[in-house]
Nucleic acid binder design. Structure first.
Lengths: 179, 179
DNA sequence: ACCGTAGGCTAACGGTGTTAGCCAGGTCAA
DNA sequence: TTGACCTGGCTAACACCGTTAGCCTACGGT
């Protein structure tokens, strides 16, 4: 629990991941090119391949970091909850918060095939757990709630709702329905 | 109502859209390149630009067609519904069906910025209407239900649920919650 | 003092969307 | 009939992408 956030990475590789993440969050997915990442570190793109096998591995690193952070945020929200209803609302709020604060990262996690082979294998379980607890281990309800939350934040960050839409009301409707 | 499905397009442009759609559905998004589309029509990629301004416009065409079809499917499902509860279930079933039958198209519609400027302007309203009717014009519940449905099919077509998951049960849980 | 390796580099390849410029063929008017 | 114009093909090329091959420099260890 007092362990490092991710599996220990070679320092240079960590720097690359950090630069990549900064580019993605600051300028969006089109800026996430090997040449741009190299430039941010003062080296040329081909040199990056001394540290990673390919771009897919780098993206997987970003995704793994993001899943870990999201799980941590939900765990923290879940910790001090008095009742299941309160806990569900708190976990949902943390989920939404993370997505809205990191939309490009959220899309990288969720809008493309999940490379489970390149990720730590407990990641999915860990990030599913807070929600599962909050619905008292009712799997069907947990999956429905997960879908609702994922749908809500997707539609929100992609500007699919009318600008006049009361999203808090929609969240409230969903939470009430699943509590 | 007896009108053509889309706004009348020049024949060649319609052929291009059809070829593109076939490529996308048969081989996935990586196959949707201007060169492949040209090849399917027996012409070279640059010649396509005699008929369209750019690839974005072509994708917008596919998206517009898909939204129209999805709206039609939901309208048909909605038509013969005895009660609101039945209607909601029928519309949801039609939505899921369309997404599962056309996953690549569904992602093209939903996993990237919506170019509203390139789409017919009543499209979004039209495809929102069946669901809105089914929840008797409760906007918050409509948005929550939309998010739930979008989340469910996204997670399903992207293989995010465990293979053992009972998706019908999750749908049932959601529908019950929103009825 | 040597040797191996770590980590840079340049050049290049095949792919992408896209533009410029050329040219054959058909249509239509004078 | 002839000339003009337009439609819709073409090739060549550009800038960018991820990636590979091969070179070279500097450092660490025996």
């Amino acid at each position: 629990m007092a362990e490092t956030p991710q599996v220990q990475l070679p320092a240079r590789r960590r720097q690359i991941a950090d630069a990549a993440r900064h580019l993605l969050e600051a300028e969006g997915p089109d800026a996430l090119t090997m040449r741009r990442i190299g430039e941010a570190l003062g080296i040329k793109a081909p040199s990056l391949y001394k540290h990673l096998p390919d771009k897919t591995a780098l993206e997987a690193q970003l995704v793994a970091d993001a899943f870990t952070e999201l799980a941590e945020a939900m765990e923290a929200a879940s910790a001090n909850a008095a009742s299941p209803t309160v806990r569900l609302a708190a976990v949902a709020r943390a989920y939404r918060r993370y997505a809205v604060d990191h939309p490009h990262l959220y899309r990288l996690m969720n809008y493309r095939p999940l490379r489970r082979d390149l990720l730590p294998d407990d990641l999915e379980n860990r990030s599913a757990l807070p929600l599962l607890e909050a619905v008292e281990y009712d799997e069907a309800r947990a999956r429905a709630m997960w879908a609702f939350a994922h749908g809500m934040v997707s539609l929100e960050i992609d500007n699919r709702f009318p600008s006049t839409a009361d999203l808090d009301a929609a969240w409230q409707a969903g939470l009430a329905a699943f509590s």
